[in-house]
Amino acid sequence: MGAGHTHALYRDGRSPLHRLPPQVKLVAALSFVLLVVATPRTQLWAFGVYLVLVLAVAAVGRVPLRTLRTGLLLETPFVLFAVLLPFLSRGAQVEVLGVSVSETGLLAAFNVLAKATLGTLTSMVLASTTSIRDLLKGLERLRVPRSLLAIAGFMVRYLDVVVGEMQRMRVARAARGYDPRSLLQARAVAASAGALFVRSYERGERVYLAMVSRGWTGAMPDLGTPAATAADWARGVVLPVAGAAVCTAAWVAAR
């Protein structure tokens, strides 16, 4: 267990993208994704340009294509939904590979697929070049309330601990011959889940006591993230500005 969970996506490196302050990267990624979503779906070429932009940024961050490909697995549920759309939608029908499907459905499917893929790729690039700790620091600079960040931080910190406990319980069940073959045997798993919840709850209380013991009064201390320089922001806006140009051009072309 251990390391794998918290840093599954992050790849250590010294690329210009790694060195960019996290708050800049967060703003750039979020605005780029919003621009992609705001692009009219009829302008297919625009999405091609977006893809080139994201891949270019990934190249700057030396993110291997393999990592991006793995990340796209996250998108699978959306893909399944998108595949159904051309068959479920009504309206003008077109023939694709001898099957009659709805034209608007096809466009809607492309829309979902293209935007989800670009969004996923953008977050993958962000996640592979920014550690979770830096992401939290960036969010702090962006004035996200500290208590929310503390909750996110605790989740990151204790995920390994809870997963470890869960695995030990699974091993302990298996060691006593537990080998579920039907849903009727799920009772032991449910009991374990309950025990895990109680244990985690009790741990939460102990962590709280440890925090209070060290003078915590309700506010998390400032993590002391340095401010981003103008030069950082100048580098950071390249992607959103390029995206804005594509988006504007797409809207003009769509009229």
């Binding site: 979770i132 700790r133 939290l136 931080g153 605790f154 990151v156 910190r157 204790y158 601990v161 741990r203 102990r206 962590v207 006591l209 440890a210 925090m211």
Partner: peptide, 8 residues
């Protein structure tokens, strides 16, 4: 693990 709750 109860005492150490910050990221680093």
């Amino acid at each position: 693990d109860d005492q150490l709750f910050m990221p680093t």
